[in-house]
């Protein structure tokens, strides 16, 4: 009886061992591997954004809408020749002559470079449509046209605020109307 018991114990041990072996073999890490190859080619690039000037809100520095991007709005309000009339307190209003007035506001242009050895950049601008007769759009006293980019700067520093003043000059004969231009700035790495 004792012998039988022992034999039975051995069988049980063997069975458990076998089960463990099976389990172990089943539990052997099932794995699979793969290899993903990644390639890319880095290119230099630059970006241009418009920022509010630190003096924003004071005369001559109107706030940009959507500032910090490359597509902003600059509302200079309503103005008229007689009586130095202008509604925006953030613009500079002046009578240039006995028959012309100018409304102006300044903002900053920031051009940033990446992966580029370019030392600086040149800046140009262009208006979108021909302005009405006797109306001029200028940047820092440089008259803009819609026929091509007008050079503004030859070697501006990357990452630096470049303050530009947008000026609208209107003769007193210009009829009441909304004067609107989309001014495109072009920065080109030197």
């Amino acid at each position: 009886m004792s012998c039988n018991f022992k034999f039975g114990g051995m069988k049980a041990l063997l069975a458990i061992g076998g089960l463990l072996c099976v389990l172990a073999s089943n539990a052997t890490a099932q794995s699979s591997s793969g290899q993903l190859t990644i390639t890319m080619n880095v290119q230099s690039s630059i970006t241009l954004v418009f920022q509010n000037n630190p003096s924003v809100g004071t005369p001559g520095f109107c706030p940009l809408t959507n500032g910090g991007t490359n597509n902003v709005g600059l509302d200079m309000g309503t103005a008229a020749f007689p009586g130095n009339f202008h509604t925006a307190t953030c613009v500079n209003y002046t009578h240039l002559t006995a028959a012309d007035y100018q409304v102006s506001s300044a903002f900053d242009v920031v051009v940033t470079k990446a992966n580029s050895s370019s030392p600086n950049y040149r800046l140009a601008a262009q208006i979108s449509t021909p302005p009405p007769a006797n109306v001029k759009w200028l940047l820092n006293n440089v008259t803009l046209t819609n026929t091509g980019f007008t050079a503004l700067d030859a070697a501006d520093a990357f990452g630096a605020r470049i303050t530009k003043t947008l000026q609208v000059q209107v003769k007193n004969t210009v009829a009441a109307q909304v004067l609107q231009e989309t001014i495109t700035f072009l920065a080109t790495a030197n």
């Binding site: 241009l48 490359n70 709005g73 909304v178 001014i183 495109t184 700035f185």
Partner: peptide, 9 residues
């Protein structure tokens, strides 16, 4: 790089 300002008076 380019950017646009929509100016209105």
């Amino acid at each position: 790089a380019t950017g646009v300002i929509n100016g209105t008076l």
